[in-house]
Design a binder for these strands. Structure first.
Lengths: 258, 258
DNA sequence: CGTTAGTTTGACGCGATTCAACCTTCGTGG
DNA sequence: CCACGAAGGTTGAATCGCGTCAAACTAACG
């Protein structure tokens, strides 16, 4: 069962602020406001559902710690994982007035979230334009990630698809300081990877092993690495642009709205 | 080449306003403002590219007439169509400060667009909260469509996938009055359908024929119909929720922000 | 030490791609 | 008016990537 956490006492800035600050120039007031948004915290256990397809769903989750997935189950009983949410990621950011969830959300690990009322996000848009730009940028980034998954699912063979996904996770985790140049801790089972990639478990396993044999990927008790990153990026047709932090845009965004 | 259209003289409300009005309650001032956003119009010919992957891309397009596609080309030379934009749809709504396009956009038909500067969208968020809610709802809807494509690509066999897509287009076109209960005019070739569905042209063709033989779909010189809609919806595992107009939410959105 | 969750491997069959050909429609120009 | 080429649709046959079935293996945990 979900546990409600009483108060926000963490001294460190949240992962989300860290990411926002990489995108737009926030002043102290904005940082404070954004941290206050995260007062209402809820924790979940590994495997627990935050949201079930069809539920009433009018709030927005911000992941603070741990990994989560968005997924759907087809009539035929297949599960398709639509996205992986890492610390600092929003789930249902603009869902605002969608009465019912059109997907489910589950915790891949122990998970700590902040639950944010949509009305407070309206405040952001009306009072804190720079912060709002940051949120918009986050949606764009999510959209880019989903688009890239579309390309993978529709137009890339299994091994490229899997390697591309691993590279994506690596990039995203580095942006929040949860991975370094050597690799990262993968919090997914092969079954979860296969449901993300639209492949069977068996085929996923065989291609993971093939990638390791060919030196494009390493996996040792949950730690994923890339022996020769340049070669992996080339092989997977990976384009880092879609995850870039848009450093230049910090200037643009702040110029536009001050 | 793209042609610039001098002035906005259309008496009728744009398709976009029509769609927005189905979602949120707009007052006259908001409608006027939104129509004025669309003054800067550009037309394209069938097959022409509006945006090429890698281009500078800081504006936002609103489709007024015709169909367009967003797509990417993989290193291996395969094209994946990421989305189809119909009248009233935005392309790059929140792209704001993304310096370069991470995808291409092409006109499927003769196309009339309005080009909107991101700075004017900021105005919307600051001065017209109800309009802004409407825009957010449009992004959510786009996100839902893309998610559903993900499910199709990852977890549905060819014939379901194709039929699902046809049903999606039917629903979206009805929402803007460009389709009725009998069907719609499909402005895509089978090659374009196959690139959207992540299938080969040959396999797409065979499955289209199969769907027709089985009475799940009809196609007569470009007009797509569904002899028995309920059966098609059942077969394709189609869930209309993700395209709903959220009539209830009109109340919510306006209550929130007045 | 047994149980459960997760990984690994082989064998077989189906669904999707590829190659190749032919057909229809339509616009264009001799 | 017909000849032609281009674009799009249709179909069969061979091949291959991926899914399914089945079974064994490993690690973590009580």
């Amino acid at each position: 069962m979900a546990t409600t956490i009483k108060s926000a006492t963490s001294a460190a800035m949240s992962a989300a602020v860290h990411r926002l600050a990489n995108t737009v120039l926030l002043n102290e007031e904005e940082v404070d406001f954004f941290e206050q948004l995260q007062i209402n915290r809820v924790a979940y256990q590994r495997g627990e559902d935050l949201v079930v397809d069809g539920d009433d769903f009018r709030v927005c989750f911000l992941v603070r710690r741990g990994w989560a997935i968005k997924y759907k189950i087809t009539k035929a009983g297949r599960r398709q994982i639509i996205g992986v949410a890492l610390p600092g990621d929003f789930i249902g950011l603009h869902i605002n007035f969608q009465r019912r969830a059109s997907y489910s959300v589950a915790a891949l690990t122990e998970l700590e979230t902040a639950v944010i009322e949509p009305i407070r996000l309206l405040e952001v848009y009306q009072k804190y334009p720079v912060l709002a730009s940051g949120l918009d940028w986050m949606s764009v980034r999510n959209f880019n990630i989903l688009s890239e998954h579309n390309v993978s699912l529709g137009a890339r063979p299994a091994s490229q698809r899997i390697l591309h996904f691993m590279l994506e996770l690596w990039c995203r985790l580095r942006a929040i300081g949860e991975a370094d140049k050597d690799g990262f801790k993968l919090m997914m089972t092969q079954e979860q990877i296969s449901d993300t990639m639209g492949l069977s478990l068996v085929h996923t396993n065989k291609n993971l092993r093939k990638l390791q044999r060919e030196g494009l990927l390493s996996m040792n008790n949950g730690i994923v690495g890339f022996p020769d990153p340049a070669r992996s990026i080339e092989y997977a047709d990976f384009d880092e642009r879609f995850l870039e932090n848009f450093q230049e845009s910090r200037l643009v965004a702040s110029a536009l709205s001050r």
